[in-house]
């Protein structure tokens, strides 16, 4: 474990971009955990007397059309947005990896079946598919997560299939079979973990994408319902006020959204290096 920590320190300090990304991630995660306790106001408390106030000392990010404190709402929303993104990506990563690596390792009809199903999913415009899923199953948090997961599965499946496929005939795989490992164990213990580093880049890009997707669903009214603080809805609500000059309502949640996506996009290489033992010195 100390070896891993030393390696983590090496990865983070070696590349400044990774350092920035991990710093941002830490910031977001801390915000997600302690957000509700540090928020200066109640994110749901309306105060019509102070509606549409531009940023002031009392309300750093200003207030919205119902007089709610935007800073508090943005901070509190972090937990929900991260949870949706992590949940969706974890689900799609698990399902996609399992399907893809089985397809890549066993080949034959398993491969054909998985590939066809994934191609079918990808034949849809993905956001429209997600919209359809949420519309059909109902507008709940769980369904937003499922919908985002489903449209991401093909990417993981294809990637896992390709990565497993190139390693299927590596010497160490034959060696594992000679050591008495059955097919499932060879795949799970010897082949798949070696595919993780390249897949981590995908995971991290996907996290950003999942946040955007959840926000977009909320933006068009198919996601989290108001008055729950969520970056997507806040941007959607604020968008109407942009024309009349109340820019702060949409800007701050938008900035947070951007920051989160930016962080995940930068995280990719660092995450890969972190779990690649070959990068250890």
């Amino acid at each position: 474990m100390t070896g891993f920590l030393r390696h983590a320190r090496y990865v983070v300090t070696e590349n400044p971009v990774t350092l920035v990304a991990f710093g941002l991630l830490l910031f977001l995660v801390v915000l997600a955990f302690i957000g509700p306790t540090i928020a200066p106001h109640d994110p749901l408390a309306t105060d019509t007397a102070r509606k549409l106030e531009p940023p002031t000392r009392a309300h750093w990010f200003g207030t919205d059309q119902l007089g709610r404190d935007i800073l508090s709402r943005v901070v509190v929303a972090t937990r929900l947005d991260l949870a949706i993104a992590l949940g969706a990506v974890a689900l799609s990563f698990a399902a996609g990896s399992l399907l893809g690596s089985c397809a890549g390792y066993f080949g034959g009809w398993t491969d054909r079946l998985v590939t066809r199903v994934m191609d079918t999913i990808m034949a849809f415009p993905l956001f429209v598919l997600a919209m359809g899923i949420v519309a059909a199953l109902g507008n709940t948090l769980a369904n937003i997560v499922y919908a985002t997961a489903v449209i991401n599965v093909p990417f993981y499946a294809r990637m896992a299939r390709a990565e497993v496929n190139v390693r299927r005939d590596a010497g160490f795989v034959h060696a594992a079979r000679l050591a008495g490992n059955g097919p499932a164990r060879v795949l799970a213990v010897h082949v798949f973990p070696n595919c993780l580093p390249p897949m981590m880049v995908q995971v991290s890009l996907n996290l950003g994408w999942a946040i955007l997707n959840a926000a977009a669903l909320s933006f068009i009214g198919l996601g989290v319902r108001p008055p729950t603080p969520e970056w997507g809805i806040m941007v959607a609500e604020g968008a109407a006020f942009m024309v009349s000059g109340e820019w702060w309502i949409a800007l701050f949640p938008g900035l947070m959204l951007m920051l989160a996506v930016f962080c995940f996009n930068l995280l990719g290489d660092g995450l890969r290096d972190l779990i690649d033992p070959r990068r250890r010195t």
């Binding site: 590596a170 010497g171 160490f172 034959h174 060696a175 594992a176 973990p193 033992p277």
Partner: peptide, 14 residues
């Protein structure tokens, strides 16, 4: 049992 040609390829990197 067997000894492989390319030792770099025949050892699991992890």
């Amino acid at each position: 049992q067997m000894v492989f040609q390319d030792p770099a390829d025949s050892l699991n990197p992890r």
